Simulated scan of single mutants.
Amino acid sequence: MKIKLKLELASGQSMKGAPLELLAKGVAIARGVVDECGSVTFDARPGTAQLAVRVDRSTLNEG
């Protein structure tokens, strides 16, 4: 199943290219990247769980 989200930050900053994780019960079940329009699509298996989204910091360069 596809889950589509549109992200808008209150600051107006772009999230383009941000790697995101879709979590079910705190465990990453899908990953996606924010496009130029602020949208991200996750491919996930159907199920019942409380979902959350977080930035996948493991792919970001810290420097």
Rank of each mutant, 00 (worst) to 15 (best):
M1Y: 15
M1H: 15
M1S: 15
M1P: 15
K2F: 11
K2L: 11
K2V: 08
I3C: 08
L5G: 03
L5R: 02
L5S: 03
L5N: 05
K6A: 13
K6Q: 14
K6M: 10
K6P: 01
K6C: 03
L7D: 06
E8F: 02
E8C: 06
L9Y: 06
A10F: 05
A10Y: 04
S11K: 09
S11G: 06
S11P: 09
G12Y: 06
G12Q: 07
S14M: 06
S14I: 05
M15A: 15
K16M: 06
K16G: 02
K16W: 03
K16Q: 09
A18W: 13
A18I: 11
A18M: 15
A18C: 12
P19I: 01
P19G: 04
P19K: 07
L20Q: 08
L20Y: 02
L20F: 04
L20R: 03
E21R: 13
E21W: 03
E21N: 09
L22V: 01
L22M: 01
L23C: 04
L23V: 00
L23M: 10
L23N: 04
K25L: 10
G26I: 01
G26F: 01
V27D: 04
I29G: 04
I29T: 15
I29E: 03
A30Y: 00
R31V: 00
G32H: 05
V33R: 14
V33D: 09
V33K: 14
V34K: 07
V34Q: 06
D35M: 02
E36Q: 07
E36P: 03
E36T: 06
E36H: 04
C37M: 10
C37I: 06
C37S: 12
G38F: 03
G38M: 05
S39A: 10
S39D: 10
V40A: 04
T41E: 09
T41L: 04
T41S: 07
T41V: 12
F42D: 02
A44C: 03
A44I: 02
A44V: 12
A44Y: 00
P46N: 13
G47C: 06
G47I: 07
G47W: 01
G47L: 05
G47F: 06
G47E: 08
T48W: 10
T48P: 03
A49F: 14
A49S: 15
Q50E: 12
L51V: 10
L51T: 02
L51R: 14
A52V: 02
A52N: 09
A52R: 12
R54F: 05
R54A: 10
V55H: 09
V55L: 14
V55T: 09
V55K: 11
D56A: 11
D56M: 04
D56C: 07
R57G: 12
R57I: 11
S58Q: 12
S58R: 13
S58D: 15
T59V: 10
T59N: 12
T59Q: 15
L60F: 08
L60D: 07
N61H: 14
N61T: 10
N61V: 11
E62F: 05
E62A: 12
G63E: 15
G63L: 14
G63A: 15
